[in-house]
Amino acid sequence: MKETLAKEVQQTIERGQALNLIDVRELDELELGHIPGIIHIPLGLLEFRMHELNKNEPYVIVCRSGGRSGNATRFLESQGFDVSNMVGGMLAWEGEVK
């Protein structure tokens, strides 16, 4: 499983580079704060909504601490997607929050 640090994600965004970020937390968690522009697909719905994703694009998966996003990353990877888990999740995030 590929992993990326929250700081690396933040630096990429701050350089103005586009990233496909997917937040797999529940809606109530998302409303407490999320990375601007992130795609929200709760972990429990990922299997049913993965058709919305493009296998030709890379994605970074985010959750609260990195556990659920790790599960989501392994699942999407097994389905042929190019995905990375953001280690530490939103607890490690120091960038802008909406």
Rank of each mutant, 00 (worst) to 15 (best):
M1T: 06
K2W: 11
K2A: 15
E3S: 14
L5Q: 15
A6D: 05
V9P: 03
T12F: 10
T12E: 08
T12S: 09
E14A: 08
A18I: 02
L19V: 11
L19A: 10
L21Y: 07
I22S: 13
V24K: 00
R25W: 02
R25Q: 03
E29D: 09
L30V: 14
E31T: 07
L32E: 14
L32Q: 13
H34L: 01
H34M: 07
G37V: 10
I38P: 02
H40E: 08
L43S: 06
G44F: 01
G44S: 07
L46F: 02
R49T: 04
E52M: 11
N54M: 11
N56Q: 15
N56Y: 10
P58K: 06
P58Y: 00
P58R: 03
V60E: 00
V62L: 14
C63G: 01
G66H: 04
G66P: 06
G67P: 12
R68P: 06
S69T: 08
S69C: 06
G70S: 08
G70V: 04
G70Y: 03
G70A: 02
T73M: 11
R74T: 15
R74E: 15
D82R: 15
V83H: 04
M90V: 07
A92P: 05
W93V: 03
G95H: 11
G95V: 11
K98L: 10
K98M: 12
